[in-house]
């Protein structure tokens, strides 16, 4: 085994060992830090709860519909913004500044319009996802190589052929990468919204466990959410890389959080 994996596994063992040791030592209350073994043991209880399927469904519904709406708004807006140098220079700073605002503060306004059900969570997920998608689409359209467009035109490409064979392949990678970022922020936004006002969903359930002092269940549920989000993220970036050979630069990824 090489050194890198020795270090990684060593760190994981030390982390879990400290967690377990600290929790069993009696130095901290069980309601603050339950032992690692207990948290892992509770994963099965949490998953077999009768409400679990419903919670997963509600959260997934909010995130997926939210990202779809965010893409339906963000992509055309981004394409419009990127379509001319002037529009891009005019709108980019506005989108950039508004994009860096904690969008969860718009949640109470969405509740006024959409109510306290899943719709308001779909709304906050859509708003959060729209920003990285719009920003990436605009940037991608701006950066389509003008030589490619000229070459296609001089070969007699029609307008629809231009879109089909020049623009679409050129912007596909960055746009999909924007969608992945959008999905990430939509997960955070929808579940944060659930922890504030909701009666179903994984975020809501975590806060339920918290307020009922079922702390080991709360840790287990958050672990499931965290691993689930990481798997979705990893799977998507793998798919995108395969489909487009495009890798989002980390620097450009800093669009928005919540």
């Amino acid at each position: 085994m090489n050194r890198v994996w020795t270090l990684r596994i060593g760190a994981a063992v030390v982390f879990l060992g400290l967690w377990e040791g600290l929790a069993r030592s009696g130095l901290v209350l069980d309601t603050v830090l339950p032992p690692a073994t207990e948290v892992f043991g509770r994963i099965q209880d949490v998953v077999t709860q009768s409400d679990f399927g419903q919670d997963v469904y509600a959260s997934l519904y909010e995130v997926v519909i939210g990202v779809a709406i965010g893409a339906l708004v963000g992509m055309p807006f981004g394409a419009f913004m990127g379509s001319s140098r002037y529009l891009y220079r005019l709108l980019d700073p506005l989108v950039y500044y508004v994009g860096a605002v904690p969008k969860i503060v718009l949640f109470p306004i969405l509740i006024l319009f959409l109510g306290t059900g899943v719709e308001s969570k779909v709304g906050i997920a859509a708003i959060s996802a729209a920003f990285p998608i719009a920003i990436n689409t605009a940037l991608a359209v701006q950066e389509v190589n003008p030589m490619h467009v000229k070459a296609a035109k001089s070969l007699g490409a029609s307008r629809s052929q231009l879109y089909r064979f020049v623009y679409t392949p050129a912007i596909l990678g960055p746009v999909l990468a924007g969608a992945r970022l959008g999905l990430g922020v939509a997960i955070t936004a929808a579940l944060l919204g659930e922890t504030k006002v909701a009666n179903v969903g994984l975020g809501f359930r975590a806060i339920e466990y918290y307020s009922r002092l079922q702390i080991a269940e709360m840790y287990a549920l958050l672990l499931i959410v965290f691993v689930g989000a990481a798997l979705i993220n990893l799977g998507l970036s793998g798919l995108i890389r395969r489909a487009t050979h495009y890798q989002q630069q980390r620097v450009g990824a800093a669009a928005s959080v919540a």
């Binding site: 990430g184 997960i187 958050l222 965290f226 990824a253 919540a258």
Partner: peptide
């Protein structure tokens, strides 16, 4: 960096 760290806030509340 690309994971939903903010969702772990109940743990911070408990601790």
């Amino acid at each position: 960096f690309s994971s939903p760290i903010v969702l772990l806030y109940p743990i911070f509340l408990v601790i």
